[in-house]
Design a protein around this nucleic acid. Structure first.
Length: 257
DNA sequence: ATGACATTTGCAAAATGA
């Protein structure tokens, strides 16, 4: 069972790349982020035409997440991150596919920091930990997949200095991510690639792709039952090099059936 | 120090992202 996460940076702008990805790599589950469209503007028919069912949590202009499942309809398990009824940003949805609980996560960027956006990020991460703890307690196989907007360690960025003041690698962001991991989650990419650079994002600017100046912010966290089934994890890097690509590459795990 | 670059909204240039 291959489960991928793919920040598309605009589902309409990215539709040709997404359809290619689905037909070429045929992942069983795909968590999408940054749809940048409400449901009435999402090209649902084109996507379902490739044989995928989906649950959508869109938002006009910004944010927006979804979960696609090959050959079936994902069973929605929850939408919106609990803990703040005033939060109207579409950044979180859960579904059950083949007995696995999958969450598609678009964690707030948090820039500029310090400031209200950084406070929102840290508050959102606290709420995510609370929800993650509930999911762990279920003892079901769970995969938290998405754009976490956290560079976990200095080994996960092309240049520590270049990003030193960015919200993605502030000590508070990293501590919040570690707190989540220490609940008992397995960082699948780092488990399969323990040393060396492995990027999931390359900025459009300053030739970052051409000089391989990226960082690792798209993560798949596995509950213990899911981690026992981990076969492989990797980044479909070549898709970042295509025409009109997203600035993120699809990132995935394969679990034993 | 700033902007680069891309996308959406909406039709110019601002907002947002990472």
């Amino acid at each position: 069972m291959k489960i991928a996460t793919y920040n598309v940076n605009g589902i309409n702008a990215r539709l040709p790349r997404l359809l290619e990805y689905l037909t070429e790599e045929t992942p069983d589950v795909v968590c999408l982020q940054e749809l940048k469209a409400f449901e009435d503007k999402i090209p649902v028919k084109a996507i379902e035409g490739t044989g995928y069912g989906a649950v959508w949590h869109g938002q006009k202009s910004f944010n927006g997440v979804a979960i696609l499942a090959k050959g079936c309809e994902p069973e929605e398990y929850g939408r919106g991150l609990p803990g703040d009824p005033a939060d109207e940003q579409s950044r979180y949805i859960e579904a059950k596919v083949d007995g696995v609980i999958v969450a598609s996560i678009y964690l707030p960027n948090g820039n500029p920091q310090p400031g209200p956006k950084f406070d929102y990020k840290l508050g959102w991460m606290a709420r995510l930990r609370a929800r993650a703890a509930e999911l762990l307690a279920s003892e079901l196989p769970v995969v938290l997949a998405g754009d976490f907007n956290v560079i976990p360690t200095d080994a996960d960025v092309f240049s520590r200095a270049a990003m030193a003041h960015d919200a993605l690698m502030q000590p508070e962001s990293r501590a919040a991510f570690r707190e989540l991991l220490f609940q008992g989650w397995t960082d699948a990419i780092r488990t399969r690639h323990p040393v060396g650079p492995i990027w999931t994002f390359w900025d459009y600017q300053a030739g970052c792709w051409q000089r391989d100046a990226g960082f690792r912010i798209d993560h798949l966290l596995l509950s213990p039952v899911a981690a026992d089934r981990l076969l492989d994890a990797n980044v479909d890097k070549a898709h970042r090099g295509r025409e009109k690509a997203s600035d993120h590459a699809p990132t995935w795990v394969r679990l034993a059936d």
